[in-house]
Simulated scan of single mutants.
Amino acid sequence: MLSAVLFAALVFAFTNGFHDAPNSLATAVSTRTLGPRAAVTMAACMNVIGAFLGEGVARTISRDIITPPEGPAGPVVLLAALIGAITWNVVTWYKGMPSSSSHALVGGMIGAALASTTAVRWSGAAANFALPMVLSPMIGLLLGFFAMVAIMWVFRRTNVQRMTRGFKIAQSASAAAMALGHGLQDAQKTMGVVVLALVATGYQDSYDVPLWTVCAAAGAMALGTLTGGWRIMRTLGRRVIKLDAPRGFAAESTVAAVSYATSFIWQVPISNTHMITSAIVGVGATRRLSAVRWGVAGDIVAVWLATVPGAAAVAILAYLVLGTALPT
């Protein structure tokens, strides 16, 4: 059963890569700063580098959300949680809607816990998951808006074509920085589940992340990123608002800065998907409110709200099926 959990965790990391790859690719590709192949290769490389830069978020995932029971039930809970998260990732990817792999994972963990005798650490889940979930989109929107206002004011007397060329170069750096933040944040979530499985089954006493876990999570996510994610990229890069290079740079820089702060300072998981989508809306609102396609944005928010309960529901069903194999 532990082997099944480890395999499912790597599958989740793979789906995380192709599901969330558009976060760091859509803006750069839609503004034609980077070609699709160059963008995918760059994002995969930066994902791998980011995975090796910390483990604070992994510790939060492994210690502060749920406490699986000892014995054979522990791995079953984690396997059901991963099935819930993977299913949600695949369904939303197929529909072309950006949703949070992080929220799908935590939703799956909570759902599987509620279906079993697993204890949910509600205080930890509230402080380290629910609060960042609520605040991060608002922060992304506001920071994106004010970053773009600052750019418009600083370059107000600059020739538009010259400014666009300059920001295309700058956007290559901001896209790389955001992809690094994606690896830093999301690879650690897979690491956290693996560590939790090792602790629950008695193979490990501490919540330290083994090097092989980092390598496996980084590799699986990078492979997922290399497969692209063009359905979601179309939604983020073109359907919400038509982006230009300065706005793409402002949105990506906003997400990168928040990813680093939450990973290194607060060590809490956030959704890069929520951040980039809200940042795109924020930078787009500086043009005019009608420039944002609010109907598309509303559909995205609806998917966000459904992510935790949706993944939890699938995890509950998975646990009820898998739990029949447990000894009585």
Score class of each variant (00 low, 15 high):
70 E>M: 01
71 G>V: 09
72 P>I: 00
72 P>D: 06
72 P>V: 02
72 P>G: 04
73 A>P: 03
73 A>G: 04
74 G>Y: 03
74 G>A: 07
75 P>C: 08
77 V>E: 03
77 V>C: 06
78 L>V: 04
79 L>K: 02
79 L>D: 04
81 A>K: 01
82 L>F: 11
82 L>Y: 11
83 I>R: 04
84 G>F: 07
86 I>D: 06
87 T>M: 13
88 W>K: 07
89 N>P: 10
89 N>F: 09
90 V>H: 10
91 V>A: 14
93 W>I: 09
93 W>P: 08
95 K>P: 02
95 K>W: 13
95 K>C: 11
95 K>E: 10
96 G>D: 00
96 G>T: 03
97 M>D: 02
98 P>V: 15
98 P>F: 15
99 S>I: 13
99 S>V: 14
99 S>E: 03
101 S>E: 08
101 S>A: 07
102 S>W: 04
102 S>F: 04
103 H>E: 07
103 H>A: 12
103 H>M: 07
104 A>I: 01
104 A>R: 00
105 L>N: 11
105 L>Q: 10
105 L>Y: 12
106 V>H: 00
106 V>I: 14
108 G>F: 01
108 G>Y: 01
109 M>R: 02
109 M>G: 05
109 M>H: 05
109 M>K: 09
110 I>H: 03
110 I>A: 05
110 I>L: 15
111 G>R: 07
111 G>L: 03
111 G>M: 06
111 G>F: 03
111 G>S: 12
112 A>K: 02
112 A>V: 13
112 A>N: 05
113 A>Q: 02
114 L>Y: 05
114 L>H: 01
114 L>M: 09
114 L>G: 06
115 A>L: 11
116 S>T: 01
117 T>G: 15
119 A>G: 07
120 V>K: 02
120 V>D: 14
122 W>G: 00
122 W>A: 04
123 S>H: 14
124 G>Y: 12
124 G>K: 11
124 G>H: 12
125 A>E: 03
125 A>N: 07
125 A>W: 05
125 A>M: 11
126 A>S: 15
127 A>T: 06
128 N>Q: 11
128 N>R: 08
129 F>M: 15
130 A>I: 11
130 A>M: 10
130 A>E: 03
132 P>R: 13
132 P>L: 11
132 P>F: 12
133 M>W: 10
133 M>Q: 10
134 V>E: 10
134 V>R: 01
134 V>W: 05
134 V>T: 08
135 L>R: 05
136 S>C: 12
138 M>S: 09
138 M>H: 01
138 M>P: 01
139 I>R: 00
140 G>T: 06
140 G>Y: 00
141 L>D: 02
142 L>F: 04
144 G>Y: 03
144 G>P: 08
145 F>P: 04
145 F>E: 09
145 F>W: 09
145 F>T: 13
146 F>V: 15
147 A>R: 15
147 A>I: 10
147 A>E: 14
147 A>N: 15
148 M>L: 14
148 M>V: 11
148 M>R: 03
149 V>S: 12
149 V>P: 01
150 A>R: 11
150 A>M: 14
150 A>P: 11
150 A>L: 15
150 A>W: 13
151 I>E: 04
151 I>V: 15
151 I>D: 09
152 M>E: 15
153 W>T: 14
154 V>H: 06
155 F>H: 10
155 F>S: 06
156 R>N: 14
